[in-house]
Nucleic acid binder design. Sequence first.
DNA 1: ATGGTAGTGTAACTA
Length: 262
Amino acid sequence: MKIASFNVNGIKARLHQLTAWLPEARPDIVVLQEIKSVDEAFPSGPIEDLGWQVHTHGQKSWNGIAILSRLPVEAVRRRLPGDEADEQARYVEAVVMGDHCAVTVAGLYLPNGNPAPGPKYDYKLDWMERLRRRAAELLASEEPVVMLGDFNVIPEPRDAAHPERWAEDALFLPPTRAAFRRIVNQGWTDAIRIGDPHAGRGPFTFWDYQRQSWERDNGIRIDHILLSPQAADRMRGAGIDRDQRAGDKPSDHVPVWVELAA
DNA sequence: ATGGTAGTGTAACTA
């Protein structure tokens, strides 16, 4: 079972890239972030025509998430628990039926949090605490769980080409990294770090559109795949589709993926 | 300190 995450930065502007990448990469499950579309306006047709079921959780103009699946999906849950007043569409969860076992997939678009300090940063840290609580519940199931998406967290200096430039940024501030570690240290495995070992800096998953970041390989690693122990036992590979950043009108993120024997 | 680019949606915001 191949599970992928892709921040498309606007589904309407990225349909060409997504419909070219899906048949090429052949994932079984994809979580999308930043669809920037209400559910009714999501272009499901061209994706369904390629064999994928579409489950969206959108909002107008910003954020928004979706799960695409070629396998049977049950128990789709939208919204991260813990704050009924939170209107931002950033979390979707589903149970996917594999040949050998069921896998819970949690897709997320964690708040950016800039500028920090400020209310947006407070919201980010609150959201991370809610995610930590949900992550603990998912781990307690002792089932295969894959929690993946755009975390908007640079975990370590080696995850940025120029970490010093991120020192004051909400993606790299010490409280952000500590909150991420509190989740990982519950017992999750960082699939990209394990599956795609890299001696020096990188690998990266995001390159800004500005300042020729891609041409200069000035990237960061902020799209992550966390595996429960039962999912990590089944991991057969993981990777980053880096080439996707080089095409015509690409997203500023590239897809990340993990392959499980499931 | 500023501005550089992109998407949504058509002004101003988010990233």
